[in-house]
Design a protein around this nucleic acid. Structure first.
Length: 698
DNA sequence: GCTGCTAACCTTTTT
DNA sequence: GGTTAGCAGC
């Protein structure tokens, strides 16, 4: 550990490594640095493209330079990618500040990651203290919904005369209650009014769901936060955590929820040593329980807090920024800030009218290729959209014209049924109490269905823990041989000290043998299984593999082609949500029409509409030089058979009313055909082509 | 009790 | 256009 602090105190503003920061950024990076307790609570309001990551990285570097131990810094970001980026930049800065000081070699920031990932680590660490099996497994959203469904059936709610909410809806309601801290009735009233009549049944169902999770030693996503928050209420654990983390830094604070702010308050009750960064104008996760109140009320919640506002935008041309500012200015409450840009002028953002989906795709492929011709790599261009399926037509067109692309958001690798099959099997091998995993895994065998699976799981649950009863389970006679093969592979991968990833590869081989029977398109799925085995080799053991896969899944998917290699060039397709924190030279936003932005499904109340407006703002502010907003005139109605032609006419999004129209320029595609004017030759000279045609045959 | 078929339903964004 | 519940047949 460094013993002599590198001479970087507040005020030492002439240090070379701070020279790239403007005054506000420097203020944010260095505030309260000398204070032994980390200094006053700090709120950094960082507008889009104002160098937020860079500023935070400088602050992390400055903390370490002034003597903070890297393991005393808790850095909470919205993705592991963001955490890695932050760490990379901070280390580079430190190296510069110390001019090659060897003490900095190999420095790590061990406590950086998402709330959920850090929560998983801490809950595992304190598991014994809170009466939890440290070997607990983590349910992703689908697994959690499956478990909810089991509880739903057990409670006899699945076949009521009047339809009871689906498993996914039940889970959403449960999750909303946990994350917002609001009572069930209020959540139902506000977000699920059509389920109000089921309040009592839902309450009973949620109790059964919680009991099932506890009996099976499984945690869902919400539990990672909930257990963290609740255990941090106990003085002994709170004391330990606040002593351990002298500095807590939170990125994207506008997208945190009530439970997350509870956690922060438990670790840093007076907010000293706490830094939060965010932009209320980019809050887009209310549907997940995030509340913009966390950031808006920060000054009231923490006495004596300091606030720094970053307003100089380094990303976008003044034209793009002006248009984005105009869009967001029409929204209501927020911190006062006016972004300005010193970047060179560019073209005004375009509102591109096209006939329909097909023309929209055609226009984008043409423009993308034209930009690449003029030297802009595909990777510097992105297409953004509200919902994952909006890009379907474009994906077809890109494939047809051989333009490589990678899609972020939407259906992921891990959600594919075959990948889930194999992971469930591995999970069950490691946690035999995990009923959802077991239920799925057992039924992979031919001739075993839900009834046999349930019988086996019941019989195992009744058996003393650790017994070797698996092989003797009552499977039908014709499955006996297959069953013993299965049990043997399971035992091999679960055995303590089993060779990793070799044991998993054997399990994958076994599963590959089942694919043919289970699915029609076996070849593609087989390739995915091999890729999964490949991925497994990059983790030290099964627990890390399963935990990190559930929390930081590989995020890109690109159809059947597989993820292109890092150095290949490809066009980026992304949901707006997944585009958070990124930027490209040219950005195209699909379907900027009412019904898509705002989504038809999110026009309930003013707050929802405002969130959709911020979504458009986030999309627009990703662009550096060129921004196209697509306006397809005609929308095909999706729910019709075959080659139906039913469609509706769409209109420009309500977020760009005529009052701010002057920030945009109009374009359309395909371009109108050139007027038939012609030259003098074409009009006057009479050449007898007809005679020459006839002459050919004479 | 398993498997395959038909009929009905819902359709966003993510850790 | 995809998933889920219920039913008939093996």
């Amino acid at each position: 550990m460094p013993t002599t602090p590198i001479p970087t105190q507040p005020g030492a503003t002439d240090d070379a490594w701070l020279a790239d920061l403007n005054a506000a950024q420097r203020d944010a990076a260095l505030a309260g640095l000398g204070a032994p307790d980390g200094g006053a609570p700090l709120l950094i309001i960082a507008g889009a493209g104002t160098g937020k990551t860079n500023t935070l990285a400088h602050r992390v570097a400055a903390l370490i330079a002034s003597g903070a131990r890297p393991e005393s810094i808790l850095l909470l970001t919205f993705s592991r990618r963001a955490a890695d980026e932050m760490k990379r930049r901070a280390l580079r800065l430190l190296a510069r500040a110390a001019s090659g000081d060897t003490r900095l070699a190999g420095l790590e920031l061990p406590w950086s990651g998402t709330f959920h990932a850090i929560g998983a680590r801490l809950v595992r660490e304190f598991a014994q203290a809170i009466g939890l099996d440290p070997g607990f497994s983590i349910l992703d959203r689908e697994d959690a919904a499956d478990l909810m469904n089991l509880a739903r059936h057990d409670a006899g709610l699945a076949n009521r005369r009047k339809r009871f909410p689906q498993k996914g809806t039940c889970l959403s309601i449960y999750s909303a209650v946990v994350n917002t801290g609001d009572p069930l009735d209020q959540v139902l009233q506000a977000s699920f009014p059509w389920c109000r009549e089921w309040a009592d049944e839902l309450r009973a169902l949620f109790l059964a769901y919680v009991e099932a999770k506890q009996a099976q030693a499984v945690l869902d996503y919400d539990d990672l936060l909930l257990y963290w928050a609740r255990m941090a209420e106990h003085p002994a654990i709170a004391g330990e955590l606040s002593a351990r983390y002298a500095h807590v830094l939170v990125d994207e604070y506008q997208d945190t929820n009530r439970l997350q702010s509870d956690i922060l308050r438990a670790i840093k009750p007076d907010g000293r040593g706490l830094t939060v960064v965010g932009d209320d104008a980019q809050s887009i996760y209310a549907f997940r329980g995030a509340t913009v109140r966390n950031i808006l009320d920060f000054p009231e919640q923490f006495d004596g807090s300091r606030q720094v506002t970053l307003e100089q935008n380094y990303r976008s041309s003044p034209q793009i920024l002006a248009a984005s500012n105009a869009v967001i200015a029409l929204s209501g409450e927020g911190f006062d800030k006016t972004l300005w840009s010193a970047r060179p002028d560019g073209a005004a953002p375009a509102l591109v009218s096209v006939r329909d989906d097909a023309d929209q795709a055609g226009y984008i492929v043409d423009r993308t290729l034209a930009r690449r011709e003029s030297g802009m790599r595909l990777k510097s261009q992105a297409v953004l959209f509200r919902a994952a399926h909006h890009s379907a037509r474009l994906e077809i067109e890109l494939t047809r014209r051989n333009v490589p692309f990678v899609k972020f958001g939407g259906l992921r690798f891990l959600e594919a049924a075959h990948v889930k099959d194999l992971l469930a099997t591995l999970r069950w091998a490691h946690n035999p109490r995990d009923r959802v995993a077991g239920f799925r895994a057992i039924q992979l065998l031919a001739g075993i269905g839900p009834k046999t699976a349930a019988t086996i799981l019941d019989s195992l649950a009744a058996a003393p823990p650790g017994s070797e009863l698996l092989a003797e389970q009552p499977v039908p006679g014709h499955c006996r041989e297959a069953w013993s093969h299965f049990v043997e592979r399971l035992a091999a991968v679960a055995e303590p000290g089993a060779p990793w990833p070799a044991a998993f590869e054997r399990l994958a081989d076994w599963y590959a043998g089942q694919i043919e029977r289970l699915y029609d398109d076996a070849a593609m799925r087989d390739a995915d299984i091999r890729q999964l085995a490949h991925l497994a080799a990059t983790y030290p053991d099964a627990t890390h593999f399963l935990t990190e896969l559930a929390l930081d899944p590989p995020e890109a998917s690109s159809g059947e082609a597989g993820v292109p290699l890092r150095d290949e060039d490809y066009l980026v397709l992304s949901t707006i949500h997944s585009a958070k924190g990124q930027e490209w030279r040219a950005v195209t936003v699909l379907n900027v029409v009412d019904g898509c932005i705002p989504s038809d499904l999110a026009t309930g109340d003013a707050a929802e509409i405002d969130e959709e407006r911020r979504l458009l703002y986030v999309a627009m502010t990703r662009a550096r030089e060129e921004l196209d907003l697509m306006l397809p005139k005609r929308f095909y109605v999706t729910h019709q058979s075959g080659l139906g032609d039913r469609h509706v006419y769409a209109s420009r999004t309500r977020f760009i009313p005529n009052a701010i129209r002057h920030h945009f320029r109009d374009a359309s595609w395909p371009p109108p055909p050139p007027p038939l004017q012609g030259s003098a030759v074409s009009r006057q000279t009479a050449i007898d082509l007809a005679a020459s045609m006839r002459a050919m045959w004479k």
